[in-house]
């Protein structure tokens, strides 16, 4: 019943979906850690960072995509491309989310650890870099796993901008084949095949490392 050509066509959407997800995860990661650390170390920066986090927690990511593409695309050359707009919007939101994940993780690391490091003569920055962050990272792993799968799912918003990712391929296939069932259901299955292993793996890995190092 399943036409292998249809399946092949759908699979062609997978690379774009993964590209959007992982690029935006990378942006989020690059933003998340410094913001989390900055919010810990400098109260004056905190307000700005908090405003940024609140904006991305309180406004749909689709609105940001539309704003970047239609609203800013005319002024900012690199936002002329829908793929880029999707990545930037998801990446900025992921930065806000990941900063929260890391802040929680940093707070979960025992306060004594910081004092112990300072008592060895490390600077506050060194203590963060060599003592706190490695432990916080382990604690953050399960959260990062859910963040990646959230990005894989939300990369489907790019379909609305016309990006040729998995959902768009499913939509094209539905219109072309006039089959209302296979394209969407198969797309859902493919998404599950992407999200499930990643979140699960990071969760398991995180718990294993946590037990190994006796972290909570």
């Amino acid at each position: 019943m399943i036409d292998p050509n249809d399946l092949l066509f759908l699979l062609q959407g997978v690379p774009a979906t993964l590209a959007i997800s992982f690029l935006s995860f990378g942006i989020g990661f690059a933003l998340g850690i410094p913001i989390a650390v900055a919010r810990q170390m400098s109260p004056s920066l905190s307000y700005l960072m908090e405003a940024y986090e609140k904006a991305f927690r309180g406004i749909p990511v689709l609105v940001f995509m539309l704003l970047f593409y239609f609203g800013l695309g005319g002024f900012v050359p690199f936002l002329k491309d829908p793929f880029t707009c999707a990545v930037v919007a998801l990446g900025l939101r992921s930065g806000a989310f990941q900063s929260q994940i890391f802040r929680g993780a940093i707070n979960s690391v025992d306060k004594q650890q910081m004092m112990a490091a300072l008592s060895l003569g490390m600077t506050k920055t060194e203590a963060f870099r060599y003592v706190i962050l490695p432990q916080a990272f382990i604690v953050a792993l399960p959260g990062l796993g859910s963040e990646i799968s959230l990005l894989i799912k939300d990369s489907s918003y790019a379909f609305i901008l016309g990006v040729l990712e998995l959902t768009k391929h499913a939509d094209i296939l539905r219109k072309a084949s006039r089959s209302f069932v296979f394209p969407y259901l198969m797309a859902a299955v493919l998404y599950i095949l992407m999200t499930f292993p990643i979140a699960n793996y990071l969760d398991k890995w995180g718990s294993r490392l946590k037990t190994k190092y006796g972290l909570r």
Partner: peptide
């Protein structure tokens, strides 16, 4: 495990 958009479709 799947996107809300696909579920809606």
């Amino acid at each position: 495990g799947s996107p809300l958009i696909v579920q809606l479709l």
